[in-house]
Design a binder for these strands. Sequence first.
DNA 1: ATGAGAATCAACTGAATCCGCACAGAGGAC
DNA 2: GTCCTCTGTGCGGATTCAGTTGATTCTCAT
Lengths: 161, 161
Amino acid sequence: MAHSLPSVSNHRLGNLDEKSKAIIVELQHDGRKSYSAIGKSVGLSEAAVRQRVSRLIESGVMEIVAVTDPLSLGFARQAMVGVKVRGDISKVADRLHGYDEIDYLVVTAGSFDLLVEIVCESDRHLIEFVNEELRSIDAVVDTELFMYLSLEKQKYNWGTR
Amino acid sequence: MAHSLPSVSNHRLGNLDEKSKAIIVELQHDGRKSYSAIGKSVGLSEAAVRQRVSRLIESGVMEIVAVTDPLSLGFARQAMVGVKVRGDISKVADRLHGYDEIDYLVVTAGSFDLLVEIVCESDRHLIEFVNEELRSIDAVVDTELFMYLSLEKQKYNWGTR
DNA sequence: ATGAGAATCAACTGAATCCGCACAGAGGAC
DNA sequence: GTCCTCTGTGCGGATTCAGTTGATTCTCAT
């Protein structure tokens, strides 16, 4: 499962004051908390909270969604794939964007150029995807598969600094 | 009308029938969508949707939260750490649960035993954490660091199967 | 300093939503 | 058959949402 929002190049950012951060912290714990309840605890009116939340979502700072357990939804297999690329990494990343099986994609420094998290219905589905989609890309020199055995921890309420 | 359908259409996977899956799909796109709006689109009353959502959250199938961009909140560095362990992997996993810096922790099969995603405020913070916390654990034989350069893709609305 | 313009907030109101509860029907166990 | 549980529905009243308005603050160039 994905871990954080893509760092959109935030043109107008750094403008997160304490109030907005406090609002975010509340919503990191309960995404359906009412605006007025948030307002009371951070010291703003309901309308002000609503406006700020709307702006935070609009600008890509946060997103309020249902995060689900893949197993419960019928996705039996998950894995991380380390990918080594020859040439332009961004081109490969762009190409991988389109795949439904990929829910998390990050460019890294280290012995892999890309880390790709995939969600599949079955072993067959997973193996087929890795072999026929990932490894068939010319620029992909090597891949290494890390099958998930147990998802131990996953949190979104990392607060603010 | 809720059930009564003859056979295959009420296909159950685990505990989730088609109605609950439809509810989940809606909330994967907008975690604050109103119960009555969801009810209209999936064919249930508002109260029934409310009850199901409550049950889904209670049972750990999903969670409705604000997912945030770490950069906007002052976390400048993210990385994945591959960890090789000697002995009981679960013990190490349990120990790692407590760290605030770790937002994602999974047991894997492959050349790493654990994959650990960490979120830090700075390079110093990150390096200190890896050296003094992760690598200082006896059972940790080896670690490999993959610094994040660019978070390319991140999705939560993978639907259901 | 001062004024224009933008941004943000509080207050207000009707409409929509949430929430708790009582009741009904289906299915299972005995 | 009865009893029990689970789930859905309907219906109130309380709460919240959404949109507008006017006041206040902030910025910045004059």
